[in-house]
Amino acid sequence: MSISLDEVQHVARLARLDLEPEELLAFQAELNALLGHFQDIQALDVSEFEPRPHAVVLHDVFGDDIARPGLDREDALRNAPRTRAGLFLVPTIIED
């Protein structure tokens, strides 16, 4: 199998990565090399095994419903590149 440049561009869009044309080419080569190598796992018999998402599987972890102080607004905003009136200022998401 081989991944086309269009597919690389599509993946970059999904991943929200604005890449230069030469980077797209480099990632195309790298993805093809790695994913080619990754075919090896098709050879191992895993028919008896359910997919395992976690190292140590815990179930139903609940916390007590206790009110605790959270991060205060000033601390939460301190690292923001742009703020206004005590809020994060972000680019327009939905146009008028």
């Binding site: 991944i3 993805l31 994913l35 990754f38 895993v46 095994f49 997919p51 395992r52």
Partner: peptide, 26 residues
Amino acid sequence: IMIGTYALSAGYYDAYYVRAQQVRAR
């Protein structure tokens, strides 16, 4: 991020991500 996004994307999820989790189980 590119490898991960690809492995999780429609059409490849079972062949890569689910399969890898089965190998992890084994």
